[in-house]
Amino acid sequence: MIPPAIVDLLHTGVSVNVGTRDADLMPECTRGWGIWVEPDGKAVTLLLTESASAHTLLNLRDNGLIAITCSRPTDHVTCQLKGTVSRVRPATPQDYERQRQWRRAFLGELMAVGVPAEQVEAIIMQPAVAVEIQVTGVFAQTPGPGAGEQV
């Protein structure tokens, strides 16, 4: 189960950073545009765009291993989720509705730390691919001592 504090964090407009690797263990990173915890408290769904994350999606289809670091821009509270991808599929209207909720909070966070509105508005988040993930580990990642400890 994902601890409640982490569930709350993930629903506050966090920035989403995704790490994967290929068959040769070469790492790849990308940005995610939306994340939420599924009702069972064990799975999360992440949205990626095909254009910005092509290599990441190849890696996920190849081995399914994923790391996601989520950080709230205004206070740097950060966590990392590790997991295995159970499904990669095109985003649905329901996914886009969840993305809109996340986006509103995320844009608010970015503007609060001084990112100009026109830059925030210009981020391309659609069309998206939905990635369903079974979470296998949750780690505290807020900068400082204690970062990296399992929650």
């Binding site: 790490g19 070469m26 950080s71 990392q80």
Partner: peptide, 20 residues
Amino acid sequence: IPATIATCAKDGTPNISYVS
């Protein structure tokens, strides 16, 4: 804007974190 770094453990587990 903070940068991120992805790495991979020997057992194949990916990792991603922020860089100062």
